[in-house]
Simulated assay, not measured.
Amino acid sequence: MRRLADAMGVQAGALYRYFATKQDLLTAMAERMVGSVVDAVDAVDAAGPTGDGDWSARVARLARALRTALLAHRDGARVFAGTHSTGPNTLGFAESLVGVLREAGFGDGEAARALYAVANFTVGHTLEEQAALRPGDGGLTDAGALYEATVAGTYPHLAATLPVLTTTDFTAHFEFGLRLLLDGLRAVRR
């Protein structure tokens, strides 16, 4: 709060004139971050119902747009994860994703739970991605610590997969998880 107040050239207490609590400020920040997802929402909504095969591409576009929006801000996923925004940007994203699923034949409950699954996967993945890419304190990186712990212990399965576990190709990790999630949604679709 002090840093924000300094950046605005006011005392920290003056911020409470606009936001009753720190949580209110974080919620407003989260809503603002998700504002850039509007283009993806508009594109998905403009595509409209396209039948059986395209719903997963539309859901994937929304998930990717959310990830991109959060990555555009330092600790974006961390800020977003701690809020429950009901602003037009967040609700527009949710409305679009649930609409795609309902139009594809998912029941209301399945569509609502799928919204949580897609949003939670995307935010969780991005939270881990941003944490891993944050400049360290000069010590071992997460990858370095994992490597040392793995080769020093008796973890042959982890040692065999270290090249993938320690890569910073987070897009590949995200796309793999998103594909698993969409495949799972296909399996439960009525």
Score class of each variant (00 low, 15 high):
167 T>G: 14
3 R>D: 08
84 H>Y: 14
127 L>G: 05
63 A>H: 03
6 D>W: 04
144 G>T: 11
150 T>S: 13
50 T>Y: 01
30 A>N: 04
69 A>V: 09
44 V>L: 09
172 A>G: 07
128 E>R: 12
29 M>S: 10
118 V>M: 01
130 Q>D: 02
188 V>Q: 15
171 T>V: 13
44 V>I: 10
8 M>D: 10
98 V>W: 01
9 G>H: 07
86 T>C: 11
69 A>F: 05
23 Q>D: 15
123 V>D: 01
133 L>G: 04
105 G>L: 08
175 E>G: 06
81 A>R: 07
22 K>C: 07
120 N>C: 11
79 V>H: 02
172 A>C: 04
51 G>D: 02
83 T>R: 07
36 S>W: 02
31 E>H: 08
123 V>E: 00
140 L>I: 07
125 H>L: 12
91 L>K: 10
106 F>W: 01
148 E>R: 15
126 T>H: 04
53 G>L: 06
11 Q>F: 03
176 F>W: 07
19 F>D: 13
160 A>T: 10
12 A>K: 04
70 L>G: 08
184 G>Y: 03
145 A>Y: 01
50 T>F: 00
30 A>E: 01
86 T>P: 00
141 T>V: 05
25 L>D: 00
142 D>T: 14
58 R>H: 13
173 H>N: 11
135 P>C: 10
13 G>N: 13
118 V>F: 03
117 A>L: 15
157 H>C: 12
125 H>P: 04
23 Q>R: 12
141 T>F: 03
135 P>E: 15
152 A>W: 01
138 G>Q: 06
42 D>Y: 03
174 F>S: 08
38 V>M: 09
171 T>D: 15
83 T>E: 08
127 L>I: 09
19 F>R: 14
39 D>T: 09
17 R>W: 02
14 A>R: 15
156 P>F: 05
102 R>C: 07
31 E>V: 11
35 G>T: 11
62 L>G: 05
165 L>R: 13
107 G>Y: 06
